[in-house]
Every structure is written in C-alpha cells, then in structure tokens.
C-alpha cells in the first residue's frame, strides 16, 4: 500500500535553494516514505503530533505529515544544512 506524496508551498519555496542532486535525493527519500511512512528504520516521530522526519542526502531532514484516511503524505518542512 503506497501513499500519495504531496509537497507544501513552503517546501516548494525551500526547494529553490537546493542543488539538483539534493532534490533527487529528497525525491528518493520521499519514495521511501511513500512505501512505509511509519517505518522506524528510516523515520522518527517529532515533537509535533503526527509529524515524522526522514533524512535525505545525509545533510537534510524532511518533516512530513501522514494522513492515513486518504493515504497521503505531505512534506511540510525541510531542515537543510548545505
């Protein structure tokens, strides 16, 4: 059961600052999230209820909300150290 992935407008703005290779790495991480959004080997809960984090490109984290009723994951924010 694969979740649909959507990005917030905030994340869209953040993408503009990321190198292309890092955007590809982010897409790969979001594919991992789509396949198993609660997998504890690839993601962790955060202090915001319902929001988890997953790493990308070894220098960034994506924070995402899981909407189980609709099988949707929404990327809300990027923490990026590049």
């Amino acid at each position: 059961m694969t979740y649909r992935v959507e990005l917030s407008r905030h994340v869209l703005k953040q993408l503009a600052d990321l190198p292309l290779s890092v955007q590809v790495a982010l897409a790969e991480t979001l594919a991992v999230v789509a396949v198993a959004p609660y997998d504890p080997t690839t993601s962790d809960p955060t202090v915001v209820e319902g929001v988890r984090q997953a790493g990308f490109a070894e220098v960034g984290l994506v924070e995402y909300l899981i909407w189980d009723d609709l099988l949707v994951v929404v990327a809300l924010n990027l923490l990026w150290g590049g």
């Binding site: 990005l7 917030s8 869209l12 955007q23 909407w67 929404v74």
Partner: peptide, 28 residues
C-alpha cells in the same frame, strides 16, 4: 508553531499542496 499550523491546515483540507509528480516535472 509553524509546522503545527501547517499540519492543521492539511488536516482541515485548506492547505495548498502539490503532487510530487508535478513538482518533479517542473523542477527537473
């Protein structure tokens, strides 16, 4: 608070979100 507010907007169906396929097409 920003993340929490955004999560609430998504849950309420009022947040503007974009399918990743559209973003991939546009960015790449």
């Amino acid at each position: 608070e920003e993340i929490d507010a955004l999560a609430e907007e998504v849950r309420a169906g009022t947040a503007e979100t974009f399918p990743i396929q559209d973003v991939i097409a546009e960015r790449f």
